[in-house]
């Protein structure tokens, strides 16, 4: 009697503790996913009657150039944002030494991560300004004509990614700095005795020990690249003529912006974005599952 009571206590207690979390997660995450999928089959301006259009929104989406531009930009963000990981590692190794005033240098490098994304965006808007921007003044010293990075469809996405890389690199640097603290000094000592140094030391001795930090850095960078919305909104508002949009921004523009209110179409973009992210999330979950079982 007592034993089975204990048993049920043991099995029940985790669920009771989990319940509020599960409840919130269901209300704010799971249910909206299905609502979005549902809305994506309608034509709806958010106010009037919903009209069933079946796969109409999706058919339109696949014939929409703006969708492909956004998708391409998403891929660019994902690829080039990854530069933050090696750049963060490089700076972390560079700063991981005991010199007078190193704390000050470290905090200066960490600075961009502390200030708001909005401020970073504005700073880079000024930096790129063709009239008085620092970048074009510097280019002028070499006799290069000003380049309006944010007004040129060829450069605009790279320009915004570069602005996003600034705080992201700082983030990765911090992750690696903490990782480097945990690197086993005796192992390095032993490797030195075996005559390892430079890149070989980095690749075979340091990096394997930094594996957890690398994993987290990659995860936060992927997440960061999907959160590019604020940077784009601040720096270009999707322009010029929509060439710097990513899927999340396009969805926002279609459903909530001043000229938007196509809820159904926005929802269908959200569903596609969700499916793309599912590939990544599934991979991530699979790796977690494997790691846990392997232990």
């Amino acid at each position: 009697m007592i034993a089975s009571g204990r048993l049920s206590q043991r099995t029940l207690a985790p669920w009771i503790f989990l319940l509020p979390g599960i409840f919130m997660f269901f209300i704010y995450v799971i249910a909206p996913i299905f609502q979005s999928i549902n809305v994506s089959f309608y034509s709806w301006d958010g106010l009037g009657e919903k009209v069933w259009v079946g796969f109409g929104n999706y058919i339109e989406l696949f014939g929409d150039e703006a969708f492909y531009v956004s998708l391409k930009n998403n891929v660019l963000w994902l690829l080039f944002f990854m530069l933050a990981v090696p750049a963060g590692l490089f700076i972390a190794i560079f700063l991981n030494q005991t010199v007078w005033g190193i704390r000050l240098y470290k905090s200066l490098f960490f600075f961009p991560f502390v200030i708001s994304q909005v401020v970073v965006g504005l700073v880079f808007v000024w930096f790129y300004n063709p009239d008085f921007g620092l970048m074009n003044i510097i280019l002028g010293w070499f006799g290069i004509d000003p380049i309006a990075v944010l007004a040129d469809e060829r450069y605009v996405t790279y320009g915004i990614i570069a602005a996003g890389l600034w705080p992201q690199t700082a983030y990765c640097m911090i992750l690696y700095l903490t990782g480097l603290n945990a690197v086993d000094g005796e192992m390095i000592e032993a490797a030195r005795l075996d005559n390892a140094k430079g890149l070989r030391m980095l690749w075979y001795v340091i990096l394997p020990q930094l594996k957890p930090a690398t994993f987290i850095a990659i995860v936060v960078t992927v997440v960061g690249s999907l959160r590019s919305f604020d940077m784009i909104s601040i720096m270009t508002d999707g322009g010029p003529w929509g060439s710097s949009r990513v899927l999340a921004f396009y969805m926002y523009e279609q459903s909530f912006s001043e000229y938007g209110f196509r809820m159904g179409y926005g929802a269908s973009i959200a569903v596609i974005l969700f499916l793309i992210m599912m590939v990544y999330i599934t991979g991530f979950l699979y790796k977690m599952y494997r790691d846990e079982r392997g232990r």
Binding site: Y128, N129, P130, P146, A148, L150, A151, D152, G239, P240, W241
Partner: peptide, 11 residues
């Protein structure tokens, strides 16, 4: 065609 407007106006 006459370059009526200033350059880089999209910025």
């Amino acid at each position: 065609d006459m370059n009526w407007w200033i350059d880089n106006h999209a910025a």
